[in-house]
Amino acid sequence: MFEARLVQSSILKKVLEAIKDLLNEATFDCSDSGIQLQAMDNSHVSLVSMNLRSDGFDKYRCDRNISMGMNLGSMTKILKCAANEDVVTMKAQDNADTVTFVFESPNQEKVSDYEMKLMNLDQEHLGIPETEYACVVRLPAGEFARICRDLSQFGESVVISCTKEGVKFSSAGDIGSANIKLAQTSNVDKEELAVTVEMQEPVTLTFASRYLNSFTKATSLSNVVQLSMSPDVPLVVEYRIGEIGHIRYYLAPKIED
């Protein structure tokens, strides 16, 4: 028996929003420790890795490990049926071929349940090595989304240059070029408004703006985004999911032909 109850169904809606741009379907691996998802986008360019810890749920029970392959379009349809303030419970029997979503209004006067067929998905699991990154940048998630959106008007690529002074985002294309420099915040009153750089060595890398834009669909999950970069290894774009977990996106830098 698997059962996971979240008082804030909006978290699940936001998680889905954060992955459905890149993935059409995904397997939710449920175990005693929580729910994990790892999947590459269709073109195998980026990787999404999400973790929701069992202790972050209001109720969590998982007697046996269960992998639930879900069509994210169908899941989106079902979660649209939940009000933001509803309590959501996901349930499945062991070896089940369906999952049930139960939505309860805060006053318990309306209870709905939706059963969704599960899919058998071919799963590739990738081992992600522990990496010491040359630069780790934290900045407001909304600012990062704005920068990615603004720069994607100029070119297909965004160059991210990180030094101890701050971080620069650049793009160039047919209409011209654009540079956005963010200085490291000198006086941090509110962490969620700060730009911070932890740097071992300066890094300049080029990334596909289309994928960066897809990653920013997670913006509503967190006030802060963390970018981890090293030469010749994938960028990690990480958003925390409240007190319950995180979502990380991996994207390899472009290389010059």
Partner: peptide
């Protein structure tokens, strides 16, 4: 011109 490597080139299947 830049080319885009796949993520699977960096992380191994387990």
């Amino acid at each position: 011109q830049n080319s885009q490597p796949q993520i699977i080139d960096f992380f191994q299947n387990i």
